[in-house]
Design a protein around this nucleic acid. Structure first.
Lengths: 219, 219
DNA sequence: AAATTGATGTTGTTTTTCCAACAAAAAAGG
DNA sequence: CCTTTTTTGTTGGAAAAACAACATCAATTT
């Protein structure tokens, strides 16, 4: 599968190595119809899921049954690894948005078996650790932005982080307005208004996804 | 060290096993004075740090130099593992709050060396994966609560999650009011007011840290 | 070229939060 | 037991966000 080559879990592996890994983790492919549930809230998940084709919504329902879509998972991306590795019941459900093919890798014997038979077992574990660590850093960063009280400060937190990352005061962001608003959990229109204000005040400038941080922010 | 026995990284290990692990990861103990920086934003971290004694603040400074304290790390807890495992520059600094002793474990050769010499290498990796996975689940949960637009909905999101977790409609939370407000990133007083309102409306009842979810929430 | 669609910006109203100050209750300390 | 400190609840005014509705602009389709 070409998709697997793009998956972070299998980075720096050849086709043959990936195949031996799939074997070693008793990988099983499953197909789901549109609307079908791949796993439910409360399931005990010993498996990591790779999306091969289609797309999946990760859904959380609360005590009263209200549902929230948390993320969308697309081909080459994975889900369920946190619950599998933490040996916890899944706190979320996963639903196929369309006809979707999933590859399930059983992590139960991840650490115990396979010292020599499969050459890339270690590489796979390292990749998994890296994927989780990256996700961790990203989640922490998102929380950092979201924890700011006002839309203005959320924006400045996010934009200044981008500036710091790129090392430049001008940069392009990977979101459009609606996506940025969703990421920061604010109203799109209010955010747009706040961006205008920041531009007026000379703190920043922008055109579409291209931003320039200029002025000095008091706090 | 007694502290190490309480550290999640070394769970299910004996003293001797921990010692061999420390050797294998070329652990080095370092002492820091109050106010001293253990690592700086931008440092390349190949090391995971365990706090043996004292306490550490994880600090983030933005583009303009404004600083935020993100977490406090106490004895037996670890930090820096995400950046070490993700092979990224640290996005945060760590400062000793008082006289603090730190144990640094080098993760660089985590996957490559030590197949037989050290019996618990695998267990250590498994523990590390579990720690990161748990952290991941917790961060995701926190984001879920924080993403709600109003203080009321943040509260309901958090409380309903606790109810779901315990499987009961009554439960005790591990936060006092100020801590809960910090966790949800809202004003304590406004949150208190909102709790009163929810009680008046018959949606829940509480006494100190003890909560009961009763009524039906519209959304 | 006209019509449609999607993304973005603007504005006024309503709702909610923030903030500050204070009150009340509970816990801790002497 | 009394004092001090901490925690929690309450209130009113100022600030900000949410919301809804609409305007503008660009890209796409017909």
């Amino acid at each position: 599968m070409d998709v697997l080559m793009t998956c972070k879990l299998f980075q720096e592996m050849t086709m043959e190595e990936i195949n031996s890994i799939l074997n070693c983790f008793s990988a099983k492919e499953k197909e789901f119809k549109k609307g079908e549930f791949i796993c439910n809230q409360g399931d005990v998940m010993a498996e990591l899921c790779v999306v091969l084709e289609g797309s999946v919504h990760i859904i959380k329902s609360d005590y009263w049954g209200n549902q929230t879509i948390m993320t969308e998972v697309r081909p080459g991306e994975i889900f369920g690894e946190s619950y599998a590795c933490a040996e916890m019941e899944s706190q979320v459900a996963a639903m196929a948005l369309e006809k979707t093919r999933i590859l399930k890798l059983n992590l139960l014997h991840m650490m115990t078996v396979c010292t020599s038979a499969c050459p890339c077992h270690n590489r796979m574990i390292k990749n998994l650790i890296m994927v989780m660590a990256r996700k961790n850093v990203n989640l922490t960063e998102k929380i950092e932005h979201m924890s700011k009280r006002t839309t203005r400060n959320k924006l400045l937190s996010y934009l200044s982080a981008q500036a710091k990352k790129t090392g430049k005061s001008s940069f392009t962001i990977p979101f459009n307005r609606q996506q940025l608003a969703d990421y920061l959990s604010v109203e799109r229109s209010a955010m747009s208004a706040e961006l205008s204000k920041l531009k007026d005040e000379g703190i920043l400038d922008y055109d579409k996804n291209y931003f320039i941080l200029t002025g000095i922010s008091a706090k």
